[in-house]
């Protein structure tokens, strides 16, 4: 055909087809998306520190391993309380003259998703130690260490934030390790990553591909002795990062659960309260976040975690039941209206 023997027509046609399709599947949807989405009413803009921290997050290429999106599938539930929606990203604009918008949604999850890390792990002590060397807190972690975000000082001042690194992860030096401004900014950014609640009355988008849960009542004869979920797995997801797999915590940062009075107490009230609402009574250790509330743990899960802690590492206390925990949780709920 002569049409195809004319290079202008041929390549013109190919280019037009490509441009037309591009317009339809990329440019127009992108423009319509940015014009039709606004930040949620309760969304909080990044603070100055967090914004600077985001620049470090970008520079260090954290997006290579960490996503920032909760997909609308059941398996993503642990990363946030609801699926991410367009509005969550609507406020992210071009970074600066040199750099493009950084939504940082990511395409690989070699490490955990971080869109809700500010709720899941609000402790700055944990983050700083983890950044200095992730293996100091999570022994199996393969995340890079970021020692260049910390400086050594012989006599740290009052303002300085000193991190307590276990000896095996310290380089040979006598000084104290102090978090640099960059490290603090990065942690401020991570702490700012929280899912914004939807405005009242907005229907929550649902999670698809729900896992089929066996009917617990049918499995066990005695309704009092409802089968609890796997306590060890729940401990590993919710507690282990600080309190460690051996329950011994980390000196100067996170208290031991092994032989802990609170864990072993016959009356589990304080124990449940700490799990649900956090704890900051002991100045020798970091602040414990409200793990239970943040991660929306159900009474069954809390009971399972407690029983794991009460019966592992040489601990031996009586097991608690879900009903017992539920009662205490209801009590706490009345005490402190959240």
């Amino acid at each position: 055909m002569d049409f195809f023997n004319n290079h202008k027509y041929l390549f013109g046609a190919a280019l037009l087809l490509f441009l037309g399709l591009t317009l339809a599947v990329a440019i127009l949807p992108a423009i319509s998306n940015q014009n039709n989405n606004a930040p949620l009413p309760q969304a909080v803009a990044l603070s100055d520190e967090a914004a600077k921290g985001k620049m470090i997050y970008i520079a260090e290429g954290c997006v290579a391993c960490h996503t920032q999106q909760v997909r609308n599938v059941d398996m993503d539930k642990l990363w946030g309380s609801r699926p991410s929606i367009s509005a969550d990203y609507a406020d992210i604009k071009r970074t600066d003259f040199w750099r493009n918008t950084a939504t940082l949604m990511g395409t690989e999850r070699t490490g955990p998703d971080l869109i809700n890390i500010g709720n899941r792990q609000p402790s700055s002590d944990w983050h700083l130690l983890h950044l200095y060397n992730p293996r100091a807190v999570v022994s199996q972690s393969i995340m890079p260490a970021y020692p260049w975000l910390f400086v050594e000082k012989q006599n740290p001042g009052k303002e300085d934030i000193v991190i307590h690194v276990p000896d095996e992860f310290r380089k040979k030096s006598s000084g104290s390790l102090v978090a640099s401004q960059e490290a603090l900014h990065l942690v401020a950014y991570l702490q700012s990553l929280k899912q914004t609640p939807l405005p009242d009355g907005t229907p929550q988008p649902s999670f698809l591909y729900k896992a089929e849960k066996p009917d617990v009542k049918e499995m066990v004869g005695n309704p009092e002795e409802v089968a609890l979920p796997d306590g060890q797995a729940l401990y590993s997801s919710n507690c282990q990062a600080c309190h460690q797999p051996n329950g011994e915590g980390l000196k100067g940062a996170f208290p031991a659960l092994k032989e802990s009075k609170i864990v072993l107490d016959e009356n589990p009230e304080l124990f449940v309260k700490i799990i649900m609402q956090g704890y900051d009574a002991n100045p020798a250790f970091g602040v414990m976040p409200a793990v239970g509330i943040n991660n929306q743990l159900l009474p069954e899960a809390v009971a399972a975690i407690m029983n794991h802690e009460r019966t592992s590492w040489g601990n031996s206390a009586r097991k608690v039941t879900a009903a017992e925990v539920k009662k205490i949780m209801e009590l706490i709920g009345k005490e402190v209206p959240q």
């Binding site: 992108a30 423009i31 940015q34 989405n37 367009s86 493009n100």
Partner: peptide, 14 residues
């Protein structure tokens, strides 16, 4: 690389 359609999720679509 053109910035006109890259705000929010526009960036991800692109």
């Amino acid at each position: 690389y053109v910035p006109y359609w890259q705000i929010g999720l526009g960036e991800s679509i692109i």
